[in-house]
């Protein structure tokens, strides 16, 4: 159980897919203009990552090495399509906002990366921990990013049609925050914050990996 928690926690802090591993960034920067969209994106990723981890890990002995990538992609694409159809049916407004980014989860290297680097080599129990941990790490960062960008960039937070929080009327919303440069600026601060937190808790500097590199074997 301790091992399970350790693996889960790695995804959130020390191996956070966004702020440390730096994978799956394009979707993150693009959809983090609204908390509502970001939250559902986070949930979608948790579901896809969790489910694909379970399946990949449970059939890992049956899938020959040479065809593993096509098999992973089919599995991931199936779960993404399930999310896509479900969101279209039940939260159409959010679906419209997320648009192409939902189907694009299929090619998000975070999901394939975890299947390849972790689930394919580890028992189901740990693969679940990794999938949920990485998914949650993604969701937390994207929601925080969206919260800052939406609140300070447009002056209010609208969630499923309800106004959750708004700044005083005279607040001069700096539009740049909701534009692309704002995503990079705010994200930079979050990366710095995570690095600082990770250094404090582990007592060493955690290297930020280059885009799309994944460590072999996991654990």
């Amino acid at each position: 159980m301790r091992e399970w928690i350790a693996v889960f926690k790695r995804g959130i802090a020390i191996d956070n897919p966004l702020t440390v591993l730096m994978i799956g960034l394009c979707a993150t920067l693009a959809v983090s203009t609204k908390v509502e969209g970001a939250l559902f994106m986070g949930l979608a990723v948790i579901f896809v990552l969790g489910m694909s981890s379970v399946i990949v890990s449970s059939i890992r002995h049956l899938v020959p090495e040479k065809v593993r990538i096509p098999v992973f992609i089919v599995i991931i694409a199936s779960f993404v399509t399930i999310v896509d159809l479900t969101m279209k049916a039940f939260v159409p407004d959010v679906y419209d906002f997320l648009g192409v980014w939902i189907p694009l989860i299929v090619v998000n290297c975070m999901i394939l990366g975890r299947a390849e680097a972790f689930s394919y080599h580890n028992p189901v129990r740990l693969a679940v921990a990794d999938g949920l941990g990485m998914g949650s790490g993604f969701a937390i960062v994207i929601v925080v990013l969206a919260f800052i960008r939406e609140l300070f960039g447009s002056g209010e937070i609208v969630f499923l049609g309800a106004n959750l929080l708004s700044l005083p009327d005279g607040y001069p919303a700096p539009g740049i925050l909701v534009l692309f440069p704002g995503a990079f600026i705010v994200f930079g601060f979050i990366v710095a914050l995570t690095a600082w937190y990770n250094r404090r808790t582990t007592g060493r500097t955690v290297e930020t990996s280059a885009h799309c590199t994944i460590e072999e074997g996991g654990r």
Binding site: D96, G175, V178, L179
Partner: peptide, 8 residues
């Protein structure tokens, strides 16, 4: 529906 920049 639209995907215009929030706030702008």
């Amino acid at each position: 529906t639209m995907n215009e920049t929030p706030g702008l």
